[in-house]
Design a protein around this nucleic acid. Structure first.
Length: 101
DNA sequence: AGTATGACGGTTA
DNA sequence: CTAACCGCCATAC
């Protein structure tokens, strides 16, 4: 298959892995926090190598979980204490600020 | 080097 | 609410 993650991909995966439980981030936020790439580039990385990290904490900008495994993601997030409103995550309250710790 | 693709984002109709 | 369109950027081939 694809092979090993590119340097960019490793940065994406590392950032995703640092999102604390009970918090979420978006594809666009990951790109902004890294200062490189874009939402689609991040999505591409998650599609190839995201299975090895806490992929369910990376959701869309509108608060909906990843489409391919929305049910699985919502179940995991709820167990972490993430509040859902009308099928969407309350980003205003749950969005990770990128701050370590 | 150029085309196609995607776990996206935002705007417009 | 849905649908379509364009911009975006790393990858695959």
């Amino acid at each position: 298959m694809g092979g090993e993650p590119t340097p960019f991909a490793e940065r994406v995966l590392d950032l995703v892995a640092s999102v604390p439980a009970g918090r979420v981030t978006t594809y666009g936020d990951v790109a902004e926090l890294l200062g490189e790439g874009g939402p689609r580039a991040v999505g591409g990385v998650m599609a190839r190598w995201g299975g090895g990290v806490t992929w369910w904490r990376v959701i869309r900008a509108d608060g909906t979980p990843p489409l391919h495994k929305a049910g699985d993601a919502e179940r995991r997030l709820r167990r972490e204490g993430v509040r859902f409103v009308d099928g969407r995550v309350d980003l205003a309250a749950t969005r990770w600020d990128g701050r370590p710790g």
